[in-house]
Amino acid sequence: MNEKRRRFEALAMPHLDAATNLARWLTRGGAEADDIVQDAMLRAFRSFEGFRGEAVRPWLLAIVRNCHRSALEQKKRHAAAPLDGDDGTEIAADDPTPEASAMERGAATRLDKAIAALPEEFREVVILRELEEMSYRDIAATTGAPIGTVMSRLARGRALLKAELTGGSHGV
Protein backbone atom coordinates (compact mmCIF):
# COMPACT_ATOMS: atom_id res chain seq x y z
CA MET A 1 0.00 0.00 0.00
CA ASN A 2 1.51 3.32 -0.97
CA GLU A 3 1.86 6.30 1.32
CA LYS A 4 -1.08 8.27 -0.07
CA ARG A 5 -3.35 5.26 0.30
CA ARG A 6 -2.13 4.65 3.83
CA ARG A 7 -2.81 8.25 4.80
CA PHE A 8 -6.24 8.07 3.19
CA GLU A 9 -7.07 4.86 5.06
CA ALA A 10 -5.96 6.44 8.33
CA LEU A 11 -7.52 9.89 7.93
CA ALA A 12 -10.50 9.68 5.58
CA MET A 13 -11.83 6.13 5.80
CA PRO A 14 -12.80 6.48 9.49
CA HIS A 15 -15.44 8.95 8.27
CA LEU A 16 -17.01 6.50 5.83
CA ASP A 17 -19.96 5.96 8.17
CA ALA A 18 -20.55 9.71 8.36
CA ALA A 19 -20.36 9.92 4.56
CA THR A 20 -22.84 7.06 4.18
CA ASN A 21 -25.19 8.52 6.76
CA LEU A 22 -25.21 11.91 5.04
CA ALA A 23 -25.69 10.42 1.56
CA ARG A 24 -28.57 8.23 2.67
CA TRP A 25 -30.29 11.11 4.41
CA LEU A 26 -29.74 13.47 1.48
CA THR A 27 -31.30 10.92 -0.86
CA ARG A 28 -33.89 9.93 1.76
CA GLY A 29 -32.90 6.32 1.63
CA GLY A 30 -32.57 6.29 -2.16
CA ALA A 31 -30.78 3.38 -3.79
CA GLU A 32 -28.30 5.82 -5.37
CA ALA A 33 -26.82 6.77 -1.98
CA ASP A 34 -24.10 4.12 -2.02
CA ASP A 35 -23.01 5.15 -5.52
CA ILE A 36 -22.76 8.72 -4.29
CA VAL A 37 -20.59 7.59 -1.37
CA GLN A 38 -18.32 5.57 -3.61
CA ASP A 39 -18.03 8.43 -6.08
CA ALA A 40 -17.25 10.82 -3.21
CA MET A 41 -14.58 8.58 -1.69
CA LEU A 42 -12.87 8.26 -5.07
CA ARG A 43 -12.99 12.00 -5.68
CA ALA A 44 -11.67 12.59 -2.18
CA PHE A 45 -8.84 10.17 -2.80
CA ARG A 46 -7.92 11.87 -6.08
CA SER A 47 -7.72 15.27 -4.44
CA PHE A 48 -6.22 13.98 -1.23
CA GLU A 49 -2.69 15.04 -2.15
CA GLY A 50 -3.75 18.67 -2.06
CA PHE A 51 -5.43 18.18 1.28
CA ARG A 52 -3.49 19.77 4.10
CA GLY A 53 -4.34 19.85 7.73
CA GLU A 54 -7.95 21.06 7.79
CA ALA A 55 -10.56 18.90 9.49
CA VAL A 56 -11.12 15.82 7.35
CA ARG A 57 -14.77 15.19 8.12
CA PRO A 58 -16.26 18.49 6.88
CA TRP A 59 -14.01 18.30 3.82
CA LEU A 60 -15.15 14.77 3.02
CA LEU A 61 -18.81 15.51 3.72
CA ALA A 62 -18.66 18.57 1.47
CA ILE A 63 -17.54 16.22 -1.32
CA VAL A 64 -20.43 13.84 -0.55
CA ARG A 65 -22.78 16.79 -0.76
CA ASN A 66 -21.34 17.90 -4.10
CA CYS A 67 -21.63 14.38 -5.48
CA HIS A 68 -25.25 14.31 -4.39
CA ARG A 69 -25.80 17.64 -6.13
CA SER A 70 -24.27 16.52 -9.38
CA ALA A 71 -26.21 13.24 -9.28
CA LEU A 72 -29.40 15.27 -8.84
CA GLU A 73 -28.53 17.61 -11.69
CA GLN A 74 -27.73 14.73 -13.95
CA LYS A 75 -31.07 13.17 -13.15
CA LYS A 76 -32.82 16.48 -13.71
CA ARG A 77 -31.29 16.70 -17.15
CA HIS A 78 -32.26 13.16 -18.03
CA ALA A 79 -35.71 12.90 -16.53
CA ALA A 80 -38.66 15.13 -17.23
CA ALA A 81 -40.09 14.64 -13.76
CA PRO A 82 -39.47 17.64 -11.49
CA LEU A 83 -37.28 16.95 -8.49
CA ASP A 84 -37.31 18.28 -4.99
CA GLY A 85 -36.35 21.95 -5.31
CA ASP A 86 -33.87 23.90 -3.24
CA ASP A 87 -36.16 26.70 -2.25
CA GLY A 88 -37.06 24.88 0.94
CA THR A 89 -40.31 26.71 1.44
CA GLU A 90 -42.57 23.69 1.55
CA ILE A 91 -42.52 20.34 3.25
CA ALA A 92 -41.08 18.04 0.63
CA ALA A 93 -43.33 15.10 1.51
CA ASP A 94 -46.00 16.86 -0.52
CA ASP A 95 -44.27 16.02 -3.73
CA PRO A 96 -44.10 12.28 -4.19
CA THR A 97 -40.72 11.94 -5.89
CA PRO A 98 -39.32 8.40 -6.05
CA GLU A 99 -36.67 9.47 -3.52
CA ALA A 100 -39.23 10.53 -0.99
CA SER A 101 -41.26 7.41 -1.33
CA ALA A 102 -38.25 5.12 -0.89
CA MET A 103 -38.17 6.04 2.76
CA GLU A 104 -41.91 6.33 3.16
CA ARG A 105 -42.59 2.92 1.69
CA GLY A 106 -40.06 1.20 3.93
CA ALA A 107 -40.27 0.33 7.57
CA ALA A 108 -39.11 3.81 8.58
CA THR A 109 -40.21 5.09 11.96
CA ARG A 110 -42.36 8.15 12.32
CA LEU A 111 -39.27 10.10 13.37
CA ASP A 112 -37.27 8.98 10.32
CA LYS A 113 -40.19 9.92 8.08
CA ALA A 114 -40.43 13.32 9.71
CA ILE A 115 -36.72 13.96 9.12
CA ALA A 116 -37.00 12.71 5.54
CA ALA A 117 -39.89 15.11 5.01
CA LEU A 118 -37.74 18.16 5.83
CA PRO A 119 -36.63 20.19 2.83
CA GLU A 120 -33.04 19.36 2.01
CA GLU A 121 -31.38 22.56 3.24
CA PHE A 122 -32.92 22.05 6.69
CA ARG A 123 -32.54 18.27 6.69
CA GLU A 124 -28.81 18.41 6.09
CA VAL A 125 -28.05 20.82 8.94
CA VAL A 126 -30.28 18.83 11.32
CA ILE A 127 -28.46 15.60 10.37
CA LEU A 128 -25.00 17.16 10.67
CA ARG A 129 -25.81 18.73 14.01
CA GLU A 130 -27.99 16.09 15.70
CA LEU A 131 -26.52 12.86 14.30
CA GLU A 132 -22.93 13.86 13.56
CA GLU A 133 -22.75 16.36 16.43
CA MET A 134 -20.72 18.71 14.31
CA SER A 135 -19.90 22.28 15.34
CA TYR A 136 -21.53 25.20 13.55
CA ARG A 137 -18.17 25.96 11.99
CA ASP A 138 -17.79 22.45 10.56
CA ILE A 139 -21.39 22.46 9.32
CA ALA A 140 -20.68 25.79 7.62
CA ALA A 141 -17.56 24.27 6.03
CA THR A 142 -19.55 21.26 4.82
CA THR A 143 -22.51 23.15 3.41
CA GLY A 144 -20.62 26.20 2.19
CA ALA A 145 -23.11 28.45 4.00
CA PRO A 146 -22.12 31.22 6.44
CA ILE A 147 -22.43 30.36 10.13
CA GLY A 148 -25.38 32.75 10.55
CA THR A 149 -27.24 30.88 7.82
CA VAL A 150 -26.40 27.54 9.47
CA MET A 151 -27.88 28.86 12.72
CA SER A 152 -31.12 30.05 11.17
CA ARG A 153 -31.54 26.90 9.07
CA LEU A 154 -30.96 24.80 12.16
CA ALA A 155 -33.60 26.78 14.08
CA ARG A 156 -36.06 26.49 11.20
CA GLY A 157 -35.29 22.80 10.67
CA ARG A 158 -35.83 22.01 14.32
CA ALA A 159 -39.09 23.95 14.40
CA LEU A 160 -40.34 22.16 11.28
CA LEU A 161 -39.35 18.81 12.72
CA LYS A 162 -41.11 19.53 15.97
CA ALA A 163 -44.23 20.62 14.08
CA GLU A 164 -44.08 17.46 12.00
CA LEU A 165 -43.71 15.28 15.10
CA THR A 166 -46.32 16.94 17.29
CA GLY A 167 -48.77 18.11 14.63
CA GLY A 168 -48.82 14.57 13.54
CA SER A 169 -51.01 13.15 10.81
CA HIS A 170 -48.97 14.30 7.82
CA GLY A 171 -49.94 11.95 5.04
CA VAL A 172 -50.17 8.94 7.35
Binding site: N2, D17, T20, N21, L42, F45, A108, L131
Partner: peptide
Protein backbone atom coordinates in the same frame (compact mmCIF):
# COMPACT_ATOMS: atom_id res chain seq x y z
CA UNK B 1 -33.19 8.42 14.42
CA UNK B 2 -31.57 5.95 12.06
CA UNK B 3 -27.82 6.34 11.67
CA UNK B 4 -26.89 4.77 8.34
CA UNK B 5 -23.53 3.04 8.71
CA UNK B 6 -21.56 1.92 5.69
CA UNK B 7 -22.40 -1.75 5.05
CA UNK B 8 -19.39 -4.09 4.70
CA UNK B 9 -20.15 -4.63 1.01
CA UNK B 10 -19.83 -0.88 0.34
CA UNK B 11 -16.55 -0.75 2.25
CA UNK B 12 -15.20 -3.55 0.11
CA UNK B 13 -16.39 -1.93 -3.11
CA UNK B 14 -14.67 1.31 -2.18
CA UNK B 15 -11.51 -0.47 -1.18
CA UNK B 16 -11.48 -2.26 -4.54
CA UNK B 17 -12.08 1.02 -6.36
CA UNK B 18 -9.16 2.60 -4.47
CA UNK B 19 -6.99 -0.40 -5.34
CA UNK B 20 -7.84 0.09 -9.01
CA UNK B 21 -7.20 3.81 -8.65
CA UNK B 22 -3.67 3.29 -7.32
CA UNK B 23 -3.29 0.44 -9.83
CA UNK B 24 -1.80 -1.41 -6.93
Amino acid sequence: ATYHRAPPALRMKISDALDAETKM
